[in-house]
């Protein structure tokens, strides 16, 4: 499991590097503080507790998933984009509610980075994806459902 998560994590960083300006990310810092407990947590609540020590999180319409499919074409590789208009974003976290280990990735961003991320994530079944954004030191979140279906029978 650890290897898989590490791979997903690294893929996330690489994707981010391609999507925005690579030089503005600080991957060394991220790797230095690898949140082992949070990545091993088995529920969204536990993950959030591990990552943010119980800080309150407000729902925000300023976070969106621009191209997230409603029905996943391939559950092994679902494209997830997170975008926000919140100011001074220092961290963006993605959780996949129904995955055995919900934390898919957490990004630490310099506030000069445009807060737009793209990644691909494996999903076990129909689930909410949850984005948590740290803006001006406060936490905000948004969620959207992705349906994983057996397929066939259409048309």
């Amino acid at each position: 499991m650890t290897n898989m998560k590490r791979r997903v994590f690294l893929k996330g960083i690489l994707t981010t590097g391609g999507a925005v300006c690579a030089g503005m990310l600080i991957p060394q810092v991220v790797l230095a503080s690898w949140p082992t407990t949070a990545f091993n947590a088995g529920s969204v609540d536990q993950t959030l507790k591990d990552l943010f020590a119980g800080e309150s999180i407000t729902e925000s319409a300023k976070i969106s998933f621009p191209e997230l499919p409603t029905l996943a074409q391939d559950a092994r590789s679902v494209p997830v984009n997170i975008s926000t208009t919140l100011p001074k974003v220092s961290q963006i976290t993605l959780l996949v509610d129904k995955n055995p280990r919900p934390l898919a990735a957490t990004y630490l961003l310099s506030d000069r980075v445009e807060p737009k991320l793209s990644m691909r994530v494996k999903m076990a079944k129909t689930t909410n994806v949850v984005a948590v954004v740290k803006s001006n030191g406060k936490l905000y979140s948004a969620r959207k459902k992705v349906k994983i279906t057996i397929g066939g029978c259409g048309g």
Binding site: P69, Q73, D74, P79, G151, G152, G154
Partner: peptide, 23 residues
């Protein structure tokens, strides 16, 4: 049809991605 690779065999069109793509 936005859900072709779900409703029909994805292996027929392995390199293409579909969706409603409202944006």
């Amino acid at each position: 049809f936005p859900f072709t690779p779900i409703a029909n065999p994805a292996y027929m069109i392995p390199d293409w991605s579909f969706g409603i793509d409202q944006n």
